[in-house]
Design a protein around this nucleic acid. Structure first.
Length: 273
DNA sequence: AGTATCCTGGAA
DNA sequence: TTCCAGGATACT
């Protein structure tokens, strides 16, 4: 599902394909859709100006003279942002369509309606609670000492900690499973009990896994598609996620699937300690 | 700190 | 027909 690498992929595509374009009209195929908030129609006549990402939240800023508004978009599980040609078919479960000056359409669709598209004034973006409570960006200002501090204070299972957006921003279920496998750590292991060496391996694995995810355009194990409707490729390189009952790629022991933090959790019971 | 909740389609 | 997918939040 869309985690940091998938959202970052879309952000980069927006930057390449949408920045500088003007919104000429807006359509609401699902009027009254609960995923929309704020005066989206106020975006008409404004131009895409910049793109930002906060964890898994995408922020697209638009401008016209002194007026500055921002689209805050969260894809959650099945949300999609798609840029389609004027004649192309609109995806199913579409909630809003921004028609652009070049006649292309920027479409937000979401089958399960967990995601959202909110319009707020750009000056308010830094104040929205979700951004305020986010932890460090793992690919930006994240140091080993930050990570150590987070883990040393917690008795929770390490996987739960990795998924906690208030501690580290952007890691979801897939990448949490993957980096724990790489660092050979049992996802159930109490965070504060992991020794320094292993913790450092995990710290490096987080960066490596997220970078590789971005490099491969994200993971389309299930429903994820990028801005142009294409699939990511990272699912072809999963080490452990979705490999229940298959042999561990390191030691051949069968991969286990358990529930942790209410999520499917995949790990090798033999080499992840 | 752990769990129910939102929601729908696809798989078992 | 039931189960499962899981991001974030509101509960308990």
């Amino acid at each position: 599902m869309p985690e940091l690498p998938e959202v970052e992929t879309i952000r980069r595509q927006l930057k390449e394909h949408v920045i500088g374009l003007e919104v000429t009209s807006i359509e609401f195929p699902d009027r009254g859709s609960k995923v929309l908030k704020g005066a989206i129609e106020d975006l008409i006549g404004m131009k895409f100006f910049s793109t930002r990402r906060f964890g898994k939240l995408l922020v697209v800023d638009l401008q016209k003279n002194e007026k500055k508004l921002s689209l805050c978009i969260h894809l959650k599980m099945t949300g999609r942002l798609t840029l389609v040609d004027s004649q192309e078919e609109i995806p199913s479960h579409t909630h809003v369509i921004l028609v652009l000056h070049n006649r292309k359409k920027l479409v937000f669709s979401d089958m399960r309606q967990f995601g959202f598209v909110h319009v707020i004034s750009t000056s308010e973006v830094s104040q929205i609670p979700f951004i305020n409570t986010l932890g460090k960006e793992p690919l930006k200002d994240f140091t080993f000492s930050d990570f150590e501090k987070i883990c040393r204070h917690s008795k929770r299972p390490i996987k739960n900690l990795l998924l906690d957006q208030r501690k580290i921003a952007g890691i979801g279920n897939i990448y949490a499973c993957e980096c724990l496998w790489i660092a050979k750590i049992d996802p159930r292991k109490e965070s504060s009990s992991i020794d320094q060496v292993k913790l450092h391996e995990l710290f490096q694995a987080i960066e490596a896994v997220l970078q590789e995810g971005i490099a491969r355009g994200g993971a389309s194990d299930n429903t994820y598609r990028n801005l142009l409707g294409g699939k990511g490729k990272y699912q072809n390189f999963f080490k452990v996620y979705a490999r229940a009952s298959k042999p561990c790629l390191r030691c051949k022991t069968n991969i286990l699937r358990i529930a942790l933090a209410g999520r499917g959790t995949f790990f090798c019971p033999d080499c992840q300690k």
